[in-house]
Design a protein around this nucleic acid. Sequence first.
DNA 1: CTAATAGTGTCTATGAGACAGTATATA
DNA 2: TATATACTGTCTCATAGACACTATTAG
Lengths: 258, 258
Amino acid sequence: MTNKDALKHYDVNQYRTPDGYTSDIAVFTITSEKTGVYKPPEMTLKLMLIKRSVKDAEDNPNIEAEKWALPGGFVETSETAFEAARRELEEETSVKDVHLKHFGVYDRPGRDPRGWIISNAHYAIVPEHDLTARKANDDAAEVKLFSLDELKTIALAFDHDTIIIDAIKMITSDLLQTTVAKAFLPKAFTYSELQAVLLTVTNDPAIASHQSFARKIKTLPFIQEVKGQTTSRTSKKPTQLYQFNDMEVVKPIYTARY
Amino acid sequence: MTNKDALKHYDVNQYRTPDGYTSDIAVFTITSEKTGVYKPPEMTLKLMLIKRSVKDAEDNPNIEAEKWALPGGFVETSETAFEAARRELEEETSVKDVHLKHFGVYDRPGRDPRGWIISNAHYAIVPEHDLTARKANDDAAEVKLFSLDELKTIALAFDHDTIIIDAIKMITSDLLQTTVAKAFLPKAFTYSELQAVLLTVTNDPAIASHQSFARKIKTLPFIQEVKGQTTSRTSKKPTQLYQFNDMEVVKPIYTARY
DNA sequence: CTAATAGTGTCTATGAGACAGTATATA
DNA sequence: TATATACTGTCTCATAGACACTATTAG
């Protein structure tokens, strides 16, 4: 291997290196307020944040104490930031198999008072009941779900305000332009459940009109009926269930109507 | 400032830190082969790569020598990776004001034999004539434009094969789902020039049919006529010029037709 | 029965896409 | 004149979206 010779001469310390590499996660969930039995849910998109404690693990004063922050932590040498996000999310919420996606890197000099620390940011989608289960377990740390409106009113640590703005932009466009909505839904869902998820980020009349959407869902190539399967969880009348298939869609803005 | 107390106790060296933080750039251009005067161009999407030299600046054997690689380099402590990309691109091509976008981070352990090196990857869009000007200046380094087909046949350094695959996916969907196409075009362009750009990444009949597209362009809310302005660069008949406005578009996959 | 959600019948307007024709320039 | 690209007139078919209606169940 010719790289061996080259490595003999390479000094890993000739450059100034970062002081840390962290993985942060914007954990989104949708809370379904059941307005009653036999009704479709009212859904709200929420973000999970953690309140930084006054003292750290060694009982020293903590950086950015008492501000709200995204969960996350340092990446180990043996893993990618993506794997770190998955690990930390499992430690935090004891949920595996969450939908996780990288959406940005935050490396502005001075963003972290501790030094040159690069944050690799992801968003995660976790079903609501997985989060509420976790909150019961760990009563020490302050964990809370914030609606997008509530987020504007609280003090955020580091540059997490910027990261959160980007995360919201990203999940909004992903919900509308990709099939991630499935991560918020059970495998088989009704048209009104999918509709409720989409309405958390848009008010497009084609999606908001229930008759239009009930018709439209049957023509979408990436969604199919679950033949013969129905549920009564959203109405007294048994409702057809649907599921996503594996199709990927890229819909050009240059085609079809506006 | 309460953070001051906290910082006294913070030891920046308690964690193993990365050995380097680099910014890499996938430089895309579209080559227009003029098939004749008064004709619309034939366009091909190409990626600029640099052949790594046998010896480095200190005359030692170079890592991944003689393989093709994305341009890039180490990020300075005083800048973001995005700024580093802009700086390196200017050093490399002496072009300012290029369209530049982050699209991924590459941090798999072992991806670089020199150590734990994190690559922050961007794609850039540079008009062809800016690249050809540059090639004339710097005859030392081997720089070449590769069509997407040619890329499959060459030896790539590090994990740049993976990075390039992601870059191509990203620019393809951005060309169709956002208005980045404008970065490949002059400020005022004809419908056939925009069409040629889009056809480098799609064969959607609604875009490929020239009558359909000539009509469609007038209805797109993010494109407007430049009143009274025409050009003869693509045909003998003077042709209407168009320009992008500042509108941002998110087109849901759940609306309109398929 | 009422009330509530799911779903369909049907109409209208709009637009996609095809085809053929017209417009405007060069040589 | 021929030729090449730009553009429009017009037709057909599909469908978005609106409105009104029907279907099915719980209580």
